Amino acid sequence: MTVTESRTSTLTPTREITVAVAREKEAPFTIEQARIRPPQADEVLVKVVATGLCHTDLIVRDQFYPVPLPAVLGHEGAGIVEQVGSDVTALAPGDPVVLSYGYCGHCAQCTSGMPGYCDQFFGLNFGGSDTEGNSALADAEGEVLHDHFFAQSSFATYALVKQANAVKVSADAPLELLGPLGCGIQTGAGAVINTLRVRPGSSFLALGAGAVGLSAVMAARVAGATTIIAVDVVASRLALAMELGATHTINTLETDLVEGVREITGAGTQFALESTGRPEVLAQAIEALGPLGQIGVVGAPKLGTTSEFDVNNLLLGGRTIRGIVEGDSVPGVFIPHLVELHRQGRFPFDKLVRFYDLDQINEAAQDSLEGRTLKAILRMPH
């Protein structure tokens, strides 16, 4: 029996759903009808209200990461619990939830409060199936659709997730808006608050003023940084950065990054976050750090991408580079924290958002790639 036959034979899909499918490398998404099986054990079936479109969805569609195709992507979902498996105790039908990434829950990293570095992270989030190699989705012809993307595959009207990565939020929270908190927004904000631990009165540099970088700007303001520099090449993004808390901006089409940062800060910035995924930007940012400066890296280029920099820029200044996954966030703790900050008006990430219908996913993707949209959110048809 072939692998595909084995995986198909384990499917018991019963509910008809609508999905956006990535069928081929660099090809447009296709809107299709599919079927999804019921939840089992600790799984939850969620009726998706809306899902954020993240840069990671697009680089996986384009096969920067080797997720098997055809696949249903989407990993910033929010919706209502429809049905629960027999072992679910923390959620019930009707609960509003934000979906986040998958983790095993029992390795050394998970049990120490760092689930973003789970021993099984890549397989659980990029493997294209569950841990036994099975998919919960079949297309209209009964063929397997790879799923479990970030343990949710929420470019769909329904998503099957573990109760561990479905975070309950208050009934009055703006659910349609909240999906991006599960990945992009928590990555930027968490990098500032959880990882770098930006201090009151400090200086912070956001390299890239997209959704992740601007989330970092807002978080730096919450953290009390008094010099907050946003860097980009798009004037409108830099203007929005000022509205959201930046004290200075640098357009690198007009100003050298290192010179600009040193003119503003003197010795260089204390904290920085690289979200562009461009190795040359990382090299410049290291040079823009002050003594004992720290830079977090969240921008994801193709696997195998390298960056060159003068090692002495690290050694002599005691500088630090740190890779960061999902903002070092424990979603069940950090997402409600961000929801509350938004409710208080201190974290207005709604200013980053533009809504699209699911069947406009290719328009949303193009607008995102060309910089017309910072954070696209896809509304689901029901």
Results as ranks from 00 to 15, higher is better:
G182N: 05
Q270M: 04
V161H: 05
S129K: 11
E363D: 12
H75G: 00
A235P: 09
V353S: 12
Q163K: 13
E16D: 03
K25E: 13
P93W: 11
L58N: 08
F271K: 00
G268H: 01
F271P: 02
L314T: 12
L137I: 08
T320K: 14
L196K: 02
A241G: 13
Y101W: 04
N134H: 14
V234F: 02
A209E: 00
L314V: 14
D130Q: 11
V49G: 11
T227K: 01
G184Q: 01
P115E: 09
V144C: 12
A27N: 14
L137G: 08
T51C: 07
G323S: 15
T249G: 03
G77H: 04
T2R: 05
G332C: 06
I250E: 00
F204R: 08
G94H: 04
T226P: 07
L244S: 12
V67R: 14
A27Q: 06
A156K: 00
V261R: 10
R15A: 11
F349N: 09
L175F: 02
H382K: 15
L378M: 10
R23C: 07
I17D: 07
D62L: 06
D367F: 09
L160P: 01
E308L: 10
M380G: 14
V144R: 04
V21E: 05
E263A: 08
E43S: 11
P174F: 01
E24L: 13
R322S: 15
L358W: 14
R61C: 14
Q284S: 12
G277Q: 09
T195F: 06
F29G: 13
L316I: 05
G323D: 12
A239T: 03
S6W: 11
E340G: 09
V258T: 04
A300Y: 13
E24S: 13
A209I: 01
F349K: 05
E16Y: 00
E326A: 04
I36V: 10
H382V: 14
Y158L: 12
L282Q: 03
M1I: 15
V339M: 11
Q163R: 10
Q120M: 14
E16A: 03
D57Q: 08
F204P: 08
T157M: 14
A171L: 01
Y103S: 06
G327H: 07
L181W: 08
A138D: 04
V19L: 10
A189H: 06
F149I: 15
I80F: 02
S368D: 05
C118N: 12
A283M: 01
V169Q: 07
A300F: 14
A241E: 09
E254Y: 04
Y356G: 01
A92F: 12
A41Q: 06
V67D: 13
R346Q: 08
G268P: 00
V81N: 05
P174Q: 02
D232N: 03
T51F: 01
V81D: 07
E176L: 05
A223F: 15
V21M: 00
L257A: 05
V21F: 09
G268F: 02
V258Y: 00
G74A: 01
G210N: 02
T10H: 12
